[in-house]
């Protein structure tokens, strides 16, 4: 089985950490990652950039692009894609393609990654 472990915290508080504090937290997390990686159990690892850099594509007959992160609480996180894009417009094009293809309600939040390590686990 593969599990995703998603990180939630107050962005304001994490943003107020000093660089040393941030580095220290990341270093401790890396130890856990390293242990999992040495057992061949670590898949992709990503750190998202702040929600201020996010754009949201609301699905609908005509997909709507909104500034800011996805903020609804009545919808849940169901999955994600990592897509290589030259700029935001390319990312939004991809999100619109997904929106058209899915045909259901909901939204895609488009947010750049600050850190990405692809990792290595088998496909499911």
């Amino acid at each position: 089985m593969l599990y995703a472990i998603l990180c939630y915290d107050s962005e304001d508080v994490v943003g107020a950490w000093t660089k040393e504090e941030d580095d220290a937290v990341i270093a401790r997390l890396r130890l856990v990652e390293d242990k999992l990686a040495s057992q061949g159990r670590l898949g992709p690892v990503a750190r998202l950039l702040p929600t201020t850099s996010a754009t949201t594509v609301r699905k609908g007959r005509e997909a709507m692009v909104l500034d800011g992160p996805f903020a609804e609480t009545k919808e849940q996180l169901l999955g994600f894609f990592i897509v290589e894009c030259a700029n935001l417009d390319e990312a939004l094009d991809a999100a619109r393609d997904f929106a058209r293809a899915s045909g259901s309600a909901g939204a895609y939040e488009v947010r750049p990654l600050g850190v990405f390590r692809p990792g290595a686990v088998r496909a499911v």
């Binding site: 950039l49 201020t52 850099s53 754009t55 700029n87 935001l88 417009d89 750049p112 990654l113 600050g114």
Partner: peptide
């Protein structure tokens, strides 16, 4: 840079 580019694109 990545964050800055995303913001200016936005």
């Amino acid at each position: 840079i990545v964050e800055g580019l995303a913001l200016i694109d936005k």
